Simulated scan of single mutants.
Amino acid sequence: MTNKEKSDAEIIKELDSIIENGISIDYDTKPKYTVKELSKKLGLSSHTIRFYDKEHLFPFVKRDVSNDERLFSDADWAFGKLIKCLRQIGLSIHDCRLFILDTLIGDDTVKERLLILVNLQASLRKQIHELQEAERDLQYKIRFFSLTCDLLVGPKIQLGGFFHESKGRGSQTRAS
């Protein structure tokens, strides 16, 4: 069974097993950051940090039982940066979890991770192209409506509302 075919429960079980048995990759897993501190370092909300932790995306998070708070390491911070990037370009939680699992497995999965990143880059480039086209269309509409507005109304646009001359009376009326 490939990692892609694994269920979330199977992935989580394997992640936990790798962490419990120790990993060969050298990570600084010393707990240092609270949810609030990690949130600030990553530019993510505390709610998002807690959600990602519940989804097993921070492999090294520890619990301070006496204070009932999560403590994150520099390794978790590095994974957080990765997760933030992968989520911003549309990777699912499931696929982020797989990517983390593959990372913890180590060098045997480098080709799989490279393929994922190359495919994500192609997808991102397509999204950028589509957004650039949408922006051009939007710019056209803004120019069109700005010109139309100037011709119909003149320079009477003010903060707090849109004022225009009423036809035939010369008095101002407010349009919402």
Rank of each mutant, 00 (worst) to 15 (best):
D8E: 13
D150L: 12
E55C: 05
L57Q: 02
G43R: 07
R50W: 11
L91A: 03
I93Q: 03
R169C: 13
L124A: 05
H164L: 06
E69I: 10
G161N: 01
K111I: 15
P59Y: 01
V61K: 02
K62L: 04
S176N: 07
N119M: 05
T148F: 15
A134Y: 01
D53I: 05
I157W: 06
K167H: 10
E37G: 07
R63F: 09
E5S: 15
D76P: 06
I89N: 05
L71Q: 07
E135N: 09
D74Y: 08
Y27C: 05
P31D: 06
L82C: 10
I25P: 01
Q132W: 03
I19D: 03
V110I: 15
E165D: 13
L159C: 02
S46N: 10
Q158G: 02
S7W: 04
D76E: 04
L115I: 12
Q121P: 01
Q88E: 12
D53M: 05
Q127N: 08
I83P: 00
E14D: 11
S46H: 04
S171M: 15
D53R: 07
T2C: 11
I100Q: 01
S92D: 07
S45R: 08
H56W: 05
L38K: 02
Y33D: 01
C149H: 15
T34F: 06
Y27T: 04
F144W: 09
L117S: 08
L38D: 01
T148G: 11
D68T: 13
K167F: 08
K54E: 14
Q172N: 13
I12A: 09
R113M: 10
R50V: 15
L101E: 02
L38W: 00
I23F: 14
L151N: 13
I12D: 09
I142C: 01
G80L: 04
H94Y: 10
A175Q: 03
E14Y: 06
S66R: 15
I142D: 00
R143W: 08
K167R: 11
K141S: 05
F79S: 00
V35L: 06
N67A: 10
Q172H: 11
S146P: 03
L98I: 11
P59N: 02
E112N: 14
L152R: 11
S24R: 15
L82D: 07
H47V: 15
